[in-house]
């Protein structure tokens, strides 16, 4: 991880005014003050840094792209235009998306991205902003852009980045969770909520099943996507009608299992990074649920840095994962 660290507002203002290309994460009151320029940003007050997990509303996390970017295009999407995101991506490069949860755009992307023209044909990475956990329901997660400084974005903000020369972008996802050995869970409908589920083929009230089986909602549902484990995380609160709520949709065609507990998340993560993944990594972000459930706020290793996020995007939406962008220098 060579580009990222926490900065003061004044430092970032100078970088923006010098014309640097930046991906930014910070508290809203800092993002709102940033001048026009080549940047996009989202709200969070949680970060993984060289010093471990940090919560601050006084510093800005930045990823500098000038060493790798030859050209950029900052574009705003809404629920009607988000389907073009893969079509707009550069031939050699990547697209970086910041999209607040709860918007129509977020809903359309989460439910329908699989059907977008050229889905997954070009690298797409990004994250969902959030607020300080003490401010949940008071403040709203927001995205900003140097193309229209001071104004939050209603849908999604995307920086399409063309890479210089012989560089290649690789987007990946790290998931420390695996499927447990319990019941097979499917859903009659796709969506962010589920009143009912099929447990080993038998229809049940899903909330009742969770209570009766004492399911630990800190652990996600995990589905096997052609050998890649993909998570769907539970919201801790239930809906007004007792429906179970999720941070990303469940899909009726997928089979899920409740995840196995992870004994030592931070150690397992470090082991994965030590296998060489950290080399050429330009950006990564880790989920707030890992931060609070897995002890990352007490994590003190220097090989993990990035904003702590409220949903991750690597081609599609993910929960309780790390997503990363590597820029590889092709020989």
């Amino acid at each position: 991880m060579i580009f990222d660290k926490l900065h003061d507002l004044e430092e970032i203002e100078k970088k923006i005014l010098k014309g640097e290309t930046l991906l930014i994460a910070a508290d809203e009151k800092l993002l709102k003050k940033l001048p026009a320029g080549r940047w996009i940003g989202g709200t969070t007050t949680y970060f993984m840094t060289e010093l471990g997990g940090v919560c601050t509303d006084k510093k800005i996390f930045v990823t500098e792209l000038d060493a790798v970017a030859s050209n950029i295009n900052i574009k705003t999407y809404d629920e009607n235009t988000i389907e073009n995101i893969y079509l707009d991506a550069p031939e050699n490069g990547f697209s970086f998306i910041i999209m607040p949860a709860g918007s129509k755009c977020h809903s359309v992307f989460s439910m329908e991205a699989f059907s977008f023209k050229d889905f997954a044909m070009r690298p797409l990475i990004g994250w969902l902003p959030g607020t300080h956990l003490d401010e949940t329901g008071v403040d709203k997660p927001k995205a900003y852009s140097g193309a229209a400084p001071g104004k939050s974005i209603g849908g999604a903000i995307v920086m399409h980045v063309e890479l210089t020369g012989n560089k290649l972008a690789e987007v990946g996802m790290l998931n420390m969770f695996e499927q447990g050995g319990g019941d097979t869970i499917t859903f009659p409908e796709s969506g962010f909520t589920a009143k009912e589920a099929y447990i080993n083929g038998v229809k049940v009230d899903f909330a009742k099943y969770i209570f009766e089986n004492n399911l630990d909602l800190r652990l996600p549902l995990v589905t096997d996507v052609n050998g890649t484990f993909v998570n769907t995380s539970f919201c801790r609160n239930f809906g007004d009608d007792g429906e179970v709520m999720f941070y990303s949709p469940v899909f009726k065609t997928f089979e899920y299992k409740h995840a196995k507990p992870v004994a030592n998340y931070a150690e397992k993560f470090t082991k994965k990074l030590s296998m060489g993944l950290g080399v050429e990594m330009v950006f990564s972000c880790n989920c707030i649920l890992n931060y609070i459930y897995s002890g990352l706020d007490r994590y003190s290793r220097s090989d993990l840095s990035g904003p702590v996020t409220f949903g991750e995007i690597a081609y599609h939406i993910h929960n309780q994962t790390v997503v990363y962008l590597r820029i590889i220098h092709n020989q």
Binding site: F114, F119, A120, M121, P123, V171, G172, M173, V225, N226, G227, T228, T253, A314, Y315, H316
Partner: peptide
Amino acid sequence: KTIGFEFLAANILIQRIRE
């Protein structure tokens, strides 16, 4: 035939097109 790929995009796309 099922091949578990390292390339995340391939795994996601295969799941989709099989459906």
